[in-house]
Amino acid sequence: MDISTFLAAHRLPDSYRDIAQKWFIPLADEIFEHQSSAKKPFFVGVNGCQGSGKSTLCDFLVYYLTEHKKLNIVSLSVDDFYLDKSSRNALAVKVHPLLATRGVPGTHNVKLAQDTFDRLRGYGTVSVPRFSKATDNPFPVVEWPVINSPPDVVLVEGWCWGVKPQSRQQLEIPVNTLEQEEDPLGTWRNYVNKQLADSYQTLFEQMAFWVMLKAPSFDQVYHWRREQEHKLAEKVGSNQSGVMTDLEIKRFIQHYQRLTEHSLATLPASCNYVFHLDSSRQITHVDKAV
């Protein structure tokens, strides 16, 4: 199967052709089979830590299912539902300073996400939210892409997508320096966990099929996230306010550590496909639900 146009558009090496053929085309074919007998749209959740390749996988699924299966596909990221900077700053004042940083549950516009899901189930046109990490704010609404609804498949990807909340006991001990020094009373992590336990689970329950790109451990996140940030700097310029230095990345990813490690330990059991990655992001094997 010729995927040359996809490789060129995403500046991917030719070796990705073999990866797609071996791992991702079978996944796409199974999604195609499931959605053909399901009520439209068919929602697919994709989980993976930062830098694991979620966006590229979703881009490939969009390409393959559109070009080779003639389906109408919409791809969303939980990142596109981040609250704007001023709203997060308000949370930082009201609840805890760490909520100024985007990422964890509680820093997303959950109502906008649910409204978007609802509109995608109806008939007409839908404006799909988009967030600019370079400016740390949503793109203006007039710049959001508009699609015809209902699509055949909706892909929703995110680092915490599908993760269950932790127990009170799990929240007691800090997992890193950030929590120990900046959240000694556990106010931030308990707030995040409460948000995850409430409205986020309602969103997750709407997914009919789950895929996970599973890192070997949280240790890889810094290196993978650093690669992402350097690519962003090349694209928009390193002087943009939303582009982080390597030192800032090290602090930033500590916001994600608790739930990423919890996800790696608990989420695979509830996924239809789990692609196991090595430290170089290469897939070593896949577990499929029976």
Score class of each variant (00 low, 15 high):
F24L: 15
A90F: 00
I147L: 14
S36P: 04
M207I: 12
D246P: 02
D118W: 09
V126Q: 03
V146G: 04
S280D: 15
K133N: 08
V163S: 06
G53T: 12
V153S: 07
V62C: 12
E205P: 00
T101H: 12
F117G: 03
Q240E: 14
L83Q: 10
N193S: 05
V192Q: 01
Q220R: 10
D118T: 09
T66Y: 11
E227Q: 08
L213K: 08
L99Q: 05
S55Q: 08
E67L: 13
Q206W: 04
M244L: 12
I19R: 09
S149F: 08
V93Q: 09
Q166Y: 00
H285F: 11
K250H: 08
T177M: 06
V156A: 13
A289H: 12
P138I: 02
V290C: 06
Y82Q: 02
L264C: 09
L120H: 06
M1Q: 10
F6V: 08
L65Q: 02
N72Y: 11
E172S: 01
L65F: 01
Y123K: 13
A197Q: 01
S77Q: 05
P151F: 12
N176A: 00
I173H: 00
E67S: 10
Y222G: 02
S132D: 15
T266W: 01
F81H: 06
L12Q: 13
V146Q: 13
A38I: 08
S4D: 14
T125K: 15
Q169H: 04
I25Q: 14
K39R: 09
Q35F: 03
L76A: 02
P129M: 10
V74P: 07
D59F: 15
G45N: 06
D59E: 15
H68M: 07
R130S: 09
A90V: 00
R121M: 13
K231W: 14
L76T: 03
E143S: 00
S87E: 08
R251F: 07
A289D: 11
V274M: 01
T101S: 07
P145E: 13
F139G: 00
V62I: 14
H276L: 03
V192K: 01
K22A: 11
K133V: 12
S77W: 06
T266N: 04
F42V: 03
K194H: 07
S52E: 12
S37C: 09
H223L: 10
Q21I: 04
Y63M: 08
Q228R: 03
I173K: 02
I253F: 13
Q50E: 11
V110K: 02
T187A: 00
K111Q: 12
P145K: 10
R17N: 14
I31D: 05
D80W: 10
F32G: 05
R102D: 04
S36Q: 13
T260N: 14
N47E: 05
T187N: 03
S217N: 11
P138F: 06
G45V: 02
M1L: 11
A9W: 04
L247I: 14
K22C: 09
H230L: 15
N137A: 03
T66G: 02
K85F: 03
S280E: 15
N137E: 15
R258I: 01
S77E: 05
S270H: 12
T177C: 06
E227V: 11
P145H: 15
N193R: 00
